[in-house]
Simulated assay, not measured.
Amino acid sequence: MIRPALTLSAAIVLSVCIFASGHRLLAEPEDSGHDYPEAASYLVSDDAAADVDAALQRAAANEKRVLLVMGANWCHDSRALAGWLETDRFAQMIAANYELVFVNVGRPQSGDGHNLGIARRYGIEDLPGTPNVLVITGGGELVNRETATTWKNAASRSEDEIFEELVSLAQKAV
């Protein structure tokens, strides 16, 4: 009787911690059939523009950059990138260099886009696929204009390739 109660209590605590921290549940590579961790859900904010503005303020105050990931739940590349970003290796690097913000963009390729004004704010007029990764200084300057919309193959990129690019963008001169 005690064991089922403890199991239930542990499950409730874990669920509350995940909900309170805003993290997505991950499917491990061996569970998903992929060689990358995949986020089970890509969170959607009620006010993505305010989330970006708050991240910019934190980035300016902490001498970091904003890592703005614009993707969607339906997109396996978005979920793959989100999954990598939640691993310990990435989380430590991100905490040291970035303020991370996920923004749902819906399906911009089919005319059902959301929050596209955020990309336009940084001079990105078209999102040809998902995800898109914008690295922005605390002062609001886009660091990676040439590569921001090239992440639609995130699921096929290696962990090291993604990690090295994000480290490089954290240090890139504007």
Score class of each variant (00 low, 15 high):
75 C>T: 06
126 D>G: 02
85 L>F: 12
137 T>S: 12
54 A>H: 03
18 I>E: 10
7 T>H: 10
24 R>N: 12
39 A>K: 01
71 G>V: 06
108 P>L: 02
13 V>A: 15
23 H>T: 07
22 G>M: 09
159 E>I: 02
134 L>N: 00
47 D>R: 04
85 L>I: 09
133 V>L: 02
174 V>D: 08
25 L>D: 07
88 D>R: 11
43 L>M: 10
111 G>F: 04
91 A>I: 04
88 D>T: 08
53 D>T: 06
55 A>L: 06
82 A>W: 00
115 N>V: 07
42 Y>F: 15
109 Q>T: 08
124 I>D: 01
102 F>H: 11
33 G>Q: 15
149 T>W: 04
93 M>S: 10
33 G>I: 13
75 C>S: 14
25 L>G: 07
28 E>T: 10
46 D>V: 00
11 A>Y: 08
24 R>F: 13
50 A>V: 01
166 L>K: 07
18 I>C: 11
158 S>I: 05
125 E>R: 12
80 A>T: 02
105 V>D: 02
154 A>I: 01
34 H>G: 06
136 I>K: 01
170 A>G: 15
169 L>Y: 11
51 D>G: 03
129 G>I: 05
65 R>W: 07
20 A>M: 13
69 V>Q: 10
168 S>E: 14
51 D>C: 05
80 A>D: 02
119 A>W: 05
61 A>V: 05
123 G>F: 00
161 E>M: 08
40 A>Q: 13
